[in-house]
């Protein structure tokens, strides 16, 4: 554990809590991609199956359980509790175009051809593209509420901090997880355009982020 990793995990947690509370308090999931949230629930489910097979630390176990619970609770709010507020017509990203290549790649490029290992690899690849339906939705509607942009900011910051964590771990422990690092770099790149808009529009102005 290092400071980048801990801060990264905290940003990840903050992002998930921001989204959950936004939907819970406003009783609305307008502007939120349910598809991205289902993908994240799938990411956590396929990655954290090792909860049953290996114990790493109390921190690790608690965080995994919290992420899983919050991910499914968010999906529940969007698709069941506040379903009437869900903008399904704007959430039109075709997730099969992500799932099929990601599933295929996880069979081809993995550390070991074992069920849990392939599912872990699948989760890493899927996480790198899971936010795309949300970014697509914002591009399509041309705007995002500021609270939604704060959610995306913390999610992007989490990714950036994990990159710093890997640089740190490489130099201090010789640790290098190629699959995670390559996917992590790809994932962080997706946030660059958003970061630019966030700093130039949301933080300088107020209210919604509107696209040019």
């Amino acid at each position: 554990m290092n400071i980048f990793r801990l801060l990264g995990d905290m940003c990840h947690l903050v992002a998930i809590i921001i989204l959950f509370l936004k939907i819970w308090r406003s009783k609305s999931c307008a502007g939120i991609s349910g598809k991205s949230q289902v993908l994240f629930a799938l990411v956590f489910t396929t990655r954290y199956l090792d909860l049953f097979t290996s114990f790493i630390s109390v921190y690790n176990t608690v965080m995994k359980v919290v992420f899983l619970v919050l991910a499914y609770a968010t999906v529940y709010l969007i698709y069941l509790r506040f379903r009437s507020t869900y903008n399904s017509e704007s959430d039109s990203f075709r997730v099969e175009f992500l799932l099929v290549p990601v599933a295929g790649l996880s069979f081809l490029e993995n550390y070991a051809f074992a069920p849990l290992e392939i599912l872990w690899t699948f989760s890493i690849y899927l996480e790198s593209v899971a936010i795309l339906p949300q970014l697509f939705m914002i591009t399509k509607t041309g705007e995002a509420e500021s609270i939604t942009t704060h959610y995306l900011f913390f999610l992007g910051l989490y990714r950036a901090l994990y990159l710093a964590n890997w640089v740190w771990r490489y130099h201090t422990e010789g640790f290098f997880d190629q699959i995670a690092v390559v996917s992590g770099v790809v994932q962080t790149i997706f946030y660059c355009d958003f970061f630019y808009l966030y700093f130039t529009k949301v933080l300088r102005g107020s209210g919604k982020m509107t696209l040019p």
Binding site: R5, I56, N60, Y111, N165, D177, Q178
Partner: peptide, 10 residues
């Protein structure tokens, strides 16, 4: 490369 086995990151 670290490979298969324990994945200690979240």
């Amino acid at each position: 490369a670290e490979g298969a086995g324990l994945h200690d990151e979240l």
